[in-house]
Computed example of a mutant assay.
Amino acid sequence: MPATDRVTGGLAVAALPAFAAAALYAWTAWCFGSPAAPPDAVAVVGGAVLLLGACSGYFALVGGSGGFFGALLLSLGLLLTVTAADQAASRPAVADCAVREVETKAEHSAGEGSPPTRTVYRLLLDCPDGYPAELKEGRAVAGKGDTVRVAFDPRRRISPEVAGRTTPWTAGLWALALLALSATIAWLKRGPSGRNHD
């Protein structure tokens, strides 16, 4: 294969993670924010098709162990892209809600070297209009009898959160790092110095 074709092919495969992330972010943002967004089931299926299609295409184009690990990194990067889109989505309504009860649940990870046990806090709320009725957080943001300020989407497409607390930057930066690793693997396997040129 000519060197120019190798470079072009390598660039095309290496660019796949960026194109997939842009498409999935646009789809997720549209589903969360547009008045003409599709029903929830269609939104989930559409997102799943984009994610699985991108990972399958990446694995088929790159191949071998590099294709497997690159597709795994790509899938994690795309999931974090969805998380960033969720955290960036508009929650235009705000309410001061009384915390009726706080429930905790420990989420254990199995296996050696797995992440430590994580505690999820479920706050049962009394809000002025009855919604939201609950809030889930990864840390204790309020106790029973306290008042918490909650930002939410009146159309109920996005989960509520503590007002002013969540930003998309952490998820977005992790997504960029994983997508860059996936693109690097694709370039090393398919670029001008890689082996998989046929």
Rank of each mutant, 00 (worst) to 15 (best):
L52N: 02
N196L: 09
A84V: 07
A21S: 12
R91D: 09
P128T: 06
L173E: 11
Y25W: 15
G138S: 09
L188F: 10
A183N: 04
A140S: 13
A186I: 07
P116E: 10
L73R: 02
N196T: 11
G63A: 09
G67P: 06
I185C: 00
A171T: 03
L74G: 00
V102H: 03
D146H: 08
V148A: 02
A71R: 02
W169H: 12
P92W: 04
A175D: 08
P160T: 06
L123D: 09
R91Q: 13
A89Y: 01
E103K: 13
T147P: 06
Y25E: 11
A37F: 03
E161C: 11
W27E: 10
R6K: 14
T170A: 15
V45Y: 02
A106F: 04
L176M: 12
S56I: 04
F152M: 08
A98H: 02
R156I: 08
L11Q: 06
T4M: 12
L181D: 06
S65Y: 12
L52T: 10
L181Y: 05
P39W: 11
R165S: 13
H108C: 00
A151T: 05
D5F: 08
W27C: 08
A21P: 00
A140E: 11
C127R: 03
S34F: 07
V49P: 01
R157Q: 09
W27F: 13
L135H: 00
A171R: 01
A183R: 00
L79G: 14
V13R: 05
A88R: 07
D146R: 09
L173P: 01
S114L: 04
T28Q: 06
L52D: 05
V62K: 03
G53T: 00
T8R: 15
D126V: 12
S65V: 15
D129M: 07
V162R: 11
R139W: 14
R100I: 10
C127P: 00
A26L: 15
W30R: 09
Y25G: 09
G143T: 03
E134S: 14
S65Q: 11
L78Q: 02
A95Y: 00
W30Q: 08
E134A: 14
W169P: 01
S75V: 07
F69W: 15
T4A: 15
L16Y: 02
A43S: 14
R100E: 14
A15G: 15
T166K: 13
A175E: 04
R100W: 04
A142I: 01
P92C: 08
L135Q: 01
R157M: 09
T117P: 04
G113W: 05
